[in-house]
Design a protein around this nucleic acid. Structure first.
Lengths: 325, 325
DNA sequence: CTGTTAGCGCGTTCAT
DNA sequence: ATGAACGCGCTAACAG
């Protein structure tokens, strides 16, 4: 049997609500020093642990947020989950992870709603059709209007990047993300719409590979990829199947490491996934706390920067072990 | 405001306990077909979602299990967490992950106990000093007596392995795991206690590296390592700092991949981490369900097998992309 | 300063 | 077949 407030109260010889007060109002709960001590002693003697469930029921919030994530076998997803876990726990929230198969976010979202979440965080690259009402849902780098998201501010970086990418350039991006829109807009600004093409990458490894192969067959002068995995695949493919094809490469680097030294890379657009996640998590916490009190204005997009491969900054980025940032 | 049973009942024109019955006793709740339909309609119209918190309070169990895990940035931990997530959710349990810094498992364990877990799963390589009472705690491959665990059955594999490892052999293992004990016992059986030495690996990358370097300085004829990361480090070190040192290598492979083709490897002791986790998770679920009814007998140790590098089996293991198994 | 009371949403008797 | 009452453990408003 579980030890409850009443057990503690009985042992201390007081009413159980007094114990409750002692627990919650520790500072300003004014009572005899003597009773305070008696309660304290009983508390320790019985090793009392408040029932978080009863508290949740009473207080109307569970201090739990859900995370919709792709498989943790993917290091990118794992990195995000790991960080979210830390941030939320630092702020007194527990994190419940709901894995979503393929892109079936709605099922995961629903399963979380059945569990009385205070809020839901949707990992990068995922998008839902409809949002279950009831608690704030926070996406990240998701420009679709379905849920609130902190996005990447890419315009300036892309303008600079396009200057060093000659000829026809194909952009390979995951969906949803800020990249598609920003890339097309940058193409417009630079007057190279005819040269710029955008393709969506699939989450599944094999399909992704196929798409990259298609691009190689197309032989654009430049390729702009999203993430280090895509870049690796691309280079493997070029080595094995297109040994005489050497496009100009630019990638979205949310990581550091010596692999950035690979030939053909003319630069990166750098952004820290950790920052993005952090800002997003904190904003979700804000939204949870201000529930009903007032709307929390969405945070500004996260700045990124273009780093050409012949710069000092780039050398620093390269001179480390591989790690997601 | 949240829609409750009472709201549904009001709309359906019945008492709210009837709705409850309809929801839980779905099969034997005998009522007029007509009321049944009315309830059903109201249920859908209001999009009613039962409060899992209230249910938990009432039923005395939260259908939640905790997972104490190291950082998900480590692919091994991520692999375990990912699998545990799937298994538990398949069986109707949600998983709450508590990250533990360094080896401070007790803190993580305690934080989980404050959250009314039905059970707690402690990831591989982690051990606690004392166990918080109140719910079953399940380790995995943890031979320490602190918590119940499914371990690896290594004796036969190690006997075979020792036959192909000449001279002085050093075993490098994480702690806690079945390896230390099994290795020493095998040394005893083979009459080579004097030749066999056991060293514990640290979780932190740099310290681990240092220890491996120490071993290389020692120049044993054979090295038995635990896991692919250790093997990689070892090979990197040999290449860069001990180019003329070429020990016989045997590793605990819980993975496949072409990297097993590395020179010096004379074989692996193969085991599937997935199987270990699966068995452990299912056993924890058993223990949770049989709470008080009767003790659940611990499952038998998980078999492993020795695969020499000149076998057909080995070739198959090697001929794939890297993946944890 | 301390005790009484009500109710969070739900499931389970026990009456009707 | 349906409804009333009770309690899971806790907090907050109100009395004494």
């Amino acid at each position: 049997m579980r030890t409850t407030l009443k057990d503690v109260a009985k042992l201390a010889g007081v009413n159980f609500t007094l114990v409750s007060k002692y627990l919650n109002n520790n500072q300003q709960a004014r009572m005899t020093k003597e009773t305070r001590e008696r309660i304290d002693r009983a508390l320790r003697e019985l090793q009392y642990r408040p029932s978080s469930i009863a508290r949740s029921l009473r207080n109307g919030c569970s201090h739990t947020v859900g995370l919709v994530s792709g498989g943790l076998t993917n290091p990118y997803n794992a990195h995000i989950a790991n960080l979210a876990l830390k941030i939320f726990s630092q702020h007194g929230y527990q994190l419940l992870i709901a894995l979503c198969e393929d892109k079936n976010v709605d099922a995961a979202l629903n399963s979380l709603c059945d569990r009385d979440m205070d809020g839901i965080f949707v990992s990068a690259g995922l998008n839902a059709d409809a949002l279950p009402t009831g608690c704030p849902v926070q996406g990240c780098d998701n420009p679709e209007p379905v849920m609130q998201s902190v996005c990447l501010k890419l315009d300036q970086s892309l303008d600079e990047a396009l200057c060093v990418l000659p000829g026809r350039v194909i952009g390979l991006f995951f969906h949803p993300s800020s990249w598609q829109g920003a890339f097309l807009a940058a193409a417009e600004r630079s007057g190279r719409v005819a040269d710029c093409e955008c393709r969506d990458l699939d989450l599944e490894r094999d399909l992704r590979r196929d798409e990259i192969r298609n691009v190689c067959r197309n032989r654009p002068d430049s390729i702009l990829t999203s993430g280090w995995e895509t870049m690796q695949m691309l280079q493997e493919l070029c080595d094995s199947e297109f040994p005489d094809y050497h496009p100009h490469l630019l990638l979205h680097a949310n990581c550091r490491g010596s692999f950035l030294n690979a030939p053909g890379i003319v630069g990166v657009i750098y952004s820290s996934t950790s920052s993005l996640i952090k800002v997003s998590c904190l904003h979700l916490i804000e939204r949870i706390k201000s529930k009903g009190i007032g709307q929390t204005p969405p945070p500004p997009p996260l700045p990124t920067c273009f780093i050409p491969s012949d710069s000092e900054k780039y050398r620093k980025l390269v001179a480390t072990h591989f790690e997601l940032t």
